[in-house]
Simulated assay, not measured.
Amino acid sequence: MRTAHEAAGEAAAKAGVTIRELHEIGEFVQVYRLFDDIWHPDPGNPPVTVELMVGFAHAGGYVAGAFERGTLAGASVGFRADGTTLHSHVTGASIGRGIGLALKLHQRAWCLERGLTEISWTFDPLVRRNARFNLTKLGARPVEYLPNFYGVMGDAINEGDESDRLLALWRLTERPEEPPREPYTVGVSVQGGRPVIGRVDGAVVLVATPPDIESLRRADPGAGRAWRLALREVLGGLMVRGSQVAGFTENGEYVVIN
């Protein structure tokens, strides 16, 4: 079996990057600029400030960058939470090149080396590619639905939408079992690009997501809002009453066990 460090090294090599912890002001400024290029946030709403990165790194938190031939191509910032958990506050990288996976595996190795056995983070439940990456690629599991967690977010990705989030928990020494797929009921389906709310009374409930919520928000804000409210009602409602998200299908559906 590969060690955590070997897995992280292999992922970084495949992505063509070198990943290391960051400690200098100039490096934190590079991260700030990279995140600005990714999210294009309002001036008063950056994902993380340089000052916070300074504080997190000095206090034993996780601030790391992925470099491609000396140029920063991805970064991740986290702080220690309760017990043996690191909360990964923000991670950003070029999409589709494996840099995000390399950063996450580096973060995993960093945590295990320090006796931390869990990583938590939040993500938008409507962003299908992130849900698939988090649940399928990493094996993390959502443990809480957080309505409008950060308030209304003004940036190029969120487009002024309310910031409902799923709190994901990645148990670093475990691999979750694959969930059953049948029999199931359909809690949310897609019809004409919009959500249709169905039944949530089955042993297994499937909750669909839009193929590309970011483009949909720009093209049809009303449809984006409808998706937000549908997942808040169905997925959020199921989780509040104790149902567990156990996986994510190839068709872009959350698998929820009642």
Results as ranks from 00 to 15, higher is better:
Pro47Ser: 06
Leu34Phe: 06
Asn130Cys: 04
Asn130Glu: 08
Glu233Thr: 15
Tyr184Ala: 15
Ala81Asn: 01
Val256Glu: 09
Arg69Glu: 11
Leu105Trp: 08
Arg132Ile: 00
Leu103His: 10
Arg181Thr: 14
Leu206Tyr: 15
Lys137Cys: 03
Asp155Asn: 15
Ile19Gly: 08
Ala168Asn: 12
Ala223Leu: 04
Val255His: 04
Leu103Gln: 06
Ala59Val: 02
Ala73Gly: 02
Ile25Gln: 10
Thr209Asp: 05
Ser94Gly: 03
Gly224Lys: 01
Cys111Val: 06
Asn148Val: 04
Thr185Met: 06
Arg128Gln: 15
Ala168Thr: 10
Gly154Tyr: 09
Gly242Gln: 12
Val50Gln: 01
Glu68His: 13
Gln244Lys: 15
Gly242Ser: 11
Thr49Leu: 04
Arg171Gly: 01
Arg175Tyr: 05
Gly237His: 08
Ala131Lys: 03
Leu72Ile: 13
Gly98Cys: 07
Glu214Arg: 11
Asp37Arg: 13
Val204Asp: 07
Pro176Leu: 05
Ile19Met: 11
Ser120Tyr: 00
Ala208Asn: 09
Glu27Cys: 00
Val255Tyr: 09
Met53Gln: 12
Leu52Asp: 14
Ala140Ser: 14
Arg165Lys: 13
Tyr150Gly: 06
Phe56Thr: 10
Ala64Asp: 10
Ile257Tyr: 08
Pro43Ala: 05
Trp121Ser: 05
Ile157Trp: 04
Ala219Cys: 00
Val77Thr: 06
Asp36Gly: 14
Leu146Asn: 05
Tyr184Asp: 10
Glu21Cys: 14
Leu72Asn: 02
Asp201Phe: 10
Trp227Lys: 11
Trp121Asn: 11
Met1Ala: 07
Tyr62Leu: 15
Trp121Met: 13
Val190Thr: 12
Arg2Phe: 06
Gly60His: 00
Arg69Met: 00
Asp82Val: 02
Val256His: 13
Gly193Pro: 04
Pro43Ser: 01
Pro43Val: 04
Pro179Glu: 12
Ala93Gln: 02
Val152Thr: 13
Asp155Lys: 04
Glu24Trp: 09
Lys14Met: 10
Arg232Cys: 10
Thr91Lys: 01
Ile95Val: 14
Val207Asn: 09
Ile197Tyr: 01
Val31Lys: 01
Ile19Leu: 10
Glu162Ile: 08
Ala223Pro: 10
Leu229His: 12
Cys111Pro: 02
Glu68Gly: 07
Thr122Leu: 07
Leu105Pro: 03
Val240Ser: 08
Val188Phe: 11
Gly222Ile: 03
Arg141Ala: 10
Gly100Ile: 08
